[in-house]
Each structure stands twice: as structure tokens, then as C-alpha cells.
Design a protein around this nucleic acid. Structure first.
Length: 127
RNA sequence: UAUGCAGAACGUUCUAUCGCUGUCCACCAAUAUGGUGGGCGGAGGAAAGUCCGGGCAACACAGAGCAUCCUGCUUCCUAACGGGAAGGCGCCGGCAGCCGGCGACAGCAAGUGCCACAGAAAAUAAACCGUCCGGCAGUAAUGACGGAUAAGGGUGAAAACGUGAGGUAAGAGCUCACGGCUUUUCCGGGCGACCGGGAUUGCGGUAAACCUCAGGAGUUGAAAAACCAAAUAGGUCCCGGAAGUGAGGCUGCUCGUUUCCGUAUUGUCCGUCACCGUGCGGAUGGUCGCCGGGAUGGGUAGGUUGCUUGAACCUGUUGGCAACAACAGGGCCAGAUCAAUGAUAGAAGCCGCCCGCCUUCCGGCGGACGGUACAAAACCCGGCUUACAGGUUUGCAGCUGCA
């Protein structure tokens, strides 16, 4: 399934604070992922958050563009790379994906790196 | 025609696949509500900067003064404005008129301060060169000394109003004529800024220097504000149990009572300070303390409202030089909240450049390559400012007279 509804996005302020304080993180240039295991209460196996720093990209147009490209790359690949393996392991996680590159990305490049990141995440979570 | 400057309106479109968000409808399960399918809507001229002005909301608020900040030609428009329109004045386009552009454009004749460098001197005037007079020295040229002088020289952004004449030893608004600005005042025109004329007073600049005058300003800002409200902890109230002791009773159990302690709480009485008591000290009585359950109000996460029907927009008529106003008709056009309005692929349009063909030229057709900007709503309006690929369009870069 290629959906990305509100229940699949990370919207809770407390969870976000908790994630950045307690979560473990790794780098997969140009992305940086922070993740942790979540409660069983959430309806989807993953809650995700995309961020772009205002310091690197001053214009809102650029930040929106990067977030949209990252989101599309995640949306189209999450089922194959992440959901199936998490469901079979019966684990649930929250994750934030930050863009730390310095230039506007191309879609194909982002998709390639996103797949790599999701696979690395599975390995980290030891699924 | 091209180029530049200023203004106005515009500022990409279509298809496929996969999504996001709001809303409506149908069906399914149904307590809330959830699921599936379909229809319709979904960024801008600046949404930006957050520089002004309002609406709205909460809090504050007797009146006056001072301080601080803002504004500063006039009249009008407007909900309001530091915005706009029409005018006045000054400067610029050699000069005058038209025309166009620019102007924080109240007051330096209320007071105080400042005026770099250069220059003798930058504001109670002043004597560097020069000019003139006097006596002295010298044959003379001239020299030093004492005095008069702001006309000339040179310096500067600016040199004590400009030009001419009189006047004088030489000079000086010292006097006069004409002219410029200015004070007070009169006459005429204009709603007014101001303009024209007469009399009168004077003559460095600077207020984006302090300041003076006039007018204005309560603070905060949708993370405002109102409402609903899970879990956990704690507050209050109610109920039950537990601890010690005594009596009845074989025990369970039932009934009565409460030693000591306390930064706890409350009542009454007494004392104390000059008085008062809600202060302080003492005496005495009641309640509470540990555990469980229930109720309740405050309130957090979260949610709803605020939240998009509006000083709005479009079309037309009328009034007005215009800004704008009035009236009539029309439709409803984003509402997200760690923040949607997209991603990918293809095609078209527009522009530039190159190649080929056609054409007297303007240009037309086909193909390749490149470009397609600036920029993302965050409560809502009115402005201002700044950014901008590309075309469209209006005005100006001037006209007349004099030199």
C-alpha cells in the first residue's frame, strides 16, 4: 500500500521530544535517521517525521520541495522495505528522517538513498 | 522602429499513474464512529519583509501634569494610516511658459550648540597680501612704526545681501536707485497651503543638532480568547475498615470510650502591648493523621470553537477633475496545525540561439539544443517596501519663445 495518512505521520509533540532525547540514530547521506521502539497502541507499524533545517535552507519553497521528495521516496518504498519485515517481527517503531545535504536533491538519487536507509534501519532494529 | 526609465494588467496549460487535505453524497457495520466508492474545492502578485494603519480578543483604566516615542505644506478620500488623490511652494531639465521628475516641505527673528580641510578671519566680526593717512629715517626708490579701511586678491560648501551711483584720505547699506529674501501690518483673490500689490523691520548656514510649537499614542497578540475533557498524582466531601483500652459474649462479632505526639486545623476563656485584634503567650474542648471505595471542583495531554460571508470580490449605472462614494445585479472562491495543496513520466505553449527550405522585404514552415522567474497561506483586512524568466500595454526621454 502506498498511503501516508495522518496516523502514519508523527504528530505528537511529546513523542517527538522523547524520540530526539532517547532514540538512537545513524547516518545515510544525505539523510540522518533517528528511531526508537514504540508502544503497541499505534495502528501502523511505523510513525515517521520528515525535517529540513531552516539553517541550511532559508527559503520555505526549498524546504517544502525537499520534504515532498523525501516523503514520496519513503511512501513508495516503505511497504516492501520496512512494513513487511516489521509486521512479521511484530515490532513497532517511530522514526524521524532529517535531510542534511547542502543542495536540492534529484528524485532518483533520493529514492536510491532512501531504500538504502530503510534497509539499514531494518538491520539496526535487528528484525 | 529600437533602447532606457516610470506606471498598469498578466505571470503557463494538458494527459496518465500513485498520493495528501477539506467538504458533500451513496453503501456497509453501527453507541460514539469507522470502512469502501464517487462528485466538487485546494497558494500569490507579491502569500515575502513584518515597516505602518485598523478590525477582533484579553487585561488595565477617576482627572491633570511630566517623561518617552511617533507624525509635520494645504484641502479632500478613507474604518484608519506614516497610504492615496487633487493642489501650493522649492529644486532639476541653459533661461521664461507649458510639460515631466524629485522634495521629513512647521519654526534658526525663543534660547543653546555646531560649521571638517583650507583660510588672516567661520560669527560680540576679523587686517595675511593690498589700499589710504601721519610723523620719522633716506637724495630718491623705499623702509620700519602708529593709525584708518572689508572695495580688491587668495581660501572655502559657505566670507556679513547683489548690481550701479553718490560719498570719502582710502573705504564701508554710510546714503540713494533698482532687485532678492525676511519681520510686522494693510488691501485684493483663494475653503486653504499660497499668490498679487502698498507700507514697514532687518540681512551667514544648520532643527535627519539639542530644542520650541502643533497633533497623536494604555499594554499584549490567534502561542489572543471561549468551551469540552481521558489517564496519573494531589485537593475537598462521604462511606467502610484498621490501631490501643474497657464492658458484654466461648470465639467471630456488637456497643462505648481515647493515653501520648504534631511547624496541622478550629471553637471558647484568660493574660499581654497606651488602646483595638485578625498579633503574641497560656488553658481547655472538638476534628484530622493509616488503608480501600465512591462523588466532586480546579486542571494537563488531546479536541472543538475562534476560522473564513468579508470596511471582500466580479459586472454595470450614476455622482466626482481624481482618490473614491452610492445604487442595482451576480456567485461563494484554501482552511492546514511538527503544518496539506504534491511526486514521477510524457506532450503542448512562450522566449533565445543555430541549421535547412520558401519569400523582393516584413516574415512563414520544419528540425536540434538551451531556458521557462521571484517566491509557500498560518486570525482577517487596507497600504508601503523589496524580489521577479517572459511577453502585453500606457506615458515620458519634449514643445514654443529668448540667448
Amino acid at each position: 500500500m502506498y498511503t501516508l495518512k495522518k496516523e502514519e505521520r508523527l504528530c505528537n509533540k511529546k513523542l517527538i521530544d522523547k524520540l530526539f532525547h532517547n532514540g538512537s540514530s545513524f547516518l545515510c547521506y544525505p539523510f540522518k535517521a533517528s528511531w526508537m521502539f514504540a508502544d503497541a497502541a499505534q495502528p501502523f507499524p511505523v510513525q515517521v517525521l520528515f525535517s529540513v533545517s531552516k539553517k541550511r535552507f532559508k527559503r520555505a519553497v526549498d524546504r517544502n520541495r525537499i520534504k515532498r521528495i523525501s516523503r514520496e521516496a519513503y511512501r513508495l518504498n516503505k511497504q516492501a522495505c520496512l512494513y513487511d519485515r516489521l509486521n512479521s517481527a511484530e515490532k513497532k517503531i517511530t522514526i524521524s528522517i532529517a535531510y542534511i545535504g547542502k543542495e536540492l536533491p534529484e528524485y532518483q538519487f533520493s529514492e536510491k538513498k532512501m531504500v538504502k536507509l530503510l534497509k539499514q534501519l531494518c538491520a539496526e532494529a535487528a528484525v
